[in-house]
């Protein structure tokens, strides 16, 4: 199974947010999507999720165009950057609702409540979502993303707002899923996390895909161990040498 972006273009008004993006992602990869603010990272993710509809080009999920489709999303777990939920719903109800949505969408659904256990969410099940702190909301988001044992995980700033312990727990969970051969797509501003979690790097700038390489290759190329440094070099070098 793989995800294929083919010549994706998207503009919001005058600004071209995605310009001719083509990209193949495969199972077993853990892809860090990097780039300055406004480079199109979020739009890329959103277009994969069907939230943003590309102006041209197509996205193939397991060989099928996702346009006007929604069933493919039963294979995706998504953890949004900001988890704002209906304030008067309780955590338990939100989880039940997600289960309701997923039920019948896929054969043999597996419920993975490991995150719920790790974050000890069950004892807060009866709390309305509106009363939760930002960190707890993040935990709920994470729990939802992993809940259905999806083949593809899309994690938008997963560790932002989590306390160090929770952050570590989440990361180990991500690594575990990675070992199972899932496709993981992460955006983050915390380079150390990405270094730990990812096998591949997508670098975007001004709506263009500048780099898509294995992390190891980049390390060799730049003679740098640290992803942070590599990125800094990337930004400085203006890419002229690197693009083949």
């Amino acid at each position: 199974m793989m995800i294929k972006f083919e010549n994706i273009n998207k503009s919001f008004g005058k600004s071209e947010v995605l310009q001719n993006i083509s990209l193949n992602l495969e199972m077993g990869q853990s892809v860090a999507i990097l780039g300055p603010n406004g480079s199109g990272k979020t739009t890329l993710i959103k277009s994969l999720l069907g939230m943003v509809i590309p102006d041209s080009g197509q996205i193939l999920f397991d060989g099928k165009n996702i346009k006007n489709e929604f069933a493919y999303r039963s294979e995706i777990g998504y953890m949004p950057q900001i988890g704002n939920y209906p304030p008067n719903l309780k955590i338990a109800q939100l989880i039940d609702m997600m289960k309701d949505i997923r039920k019948g969408k896929k054969e043999g659904i597996i419920i993975d409540e490991e995150i719920i256990e790790l974050f000890k969410l069950k004892k807060m099940y009866q709390k309305p979502l509106g009363t939760l702190s930002g960190g707890t909301k993040q935990k709920v988001s994470a729990a939802l993303a992993f809940l259905f044992d999806p083949k593809v995980l899309i994690l938008d700033e997963p560790t932002a707002g989590l306390d160090p312990l929770a952050s570590e727990l989440l990361k180990s969970k991500i690594l575990e899923e990675k070992r199972k051969g899932k496709l993981i797509i992460i955006t983050s501003h915390i380079m150390a996390d990405l270094e730990e979690l990812s096998t591949h790097v997508v670098y975007m700038q001004e709506g263009k895909l500048k780099i898509f390489k294995e992390l190891e290759d980049l390390r060799l190329e730049y003679g740098e161990e640290r992803l942070g440094k590599i990125i800094a070099l990337l930004m400085k070098n203006n890419f002229s040498k690197i693009i083949a």
Binding site: L49, G50, R73, G83, N84
Partner: peptide, 17 residues
């Protein structure tokens, strides 16, 4: 608008617009 993020989350689920 208050449900906007929630709508986003829903639209990431296997659920039609």
């Amino acid at each position: 608008y208050n449900s906007y993020e929630f709508i986003e989350l829903l639209s990431a689920q296997p659920m039609s617009r």
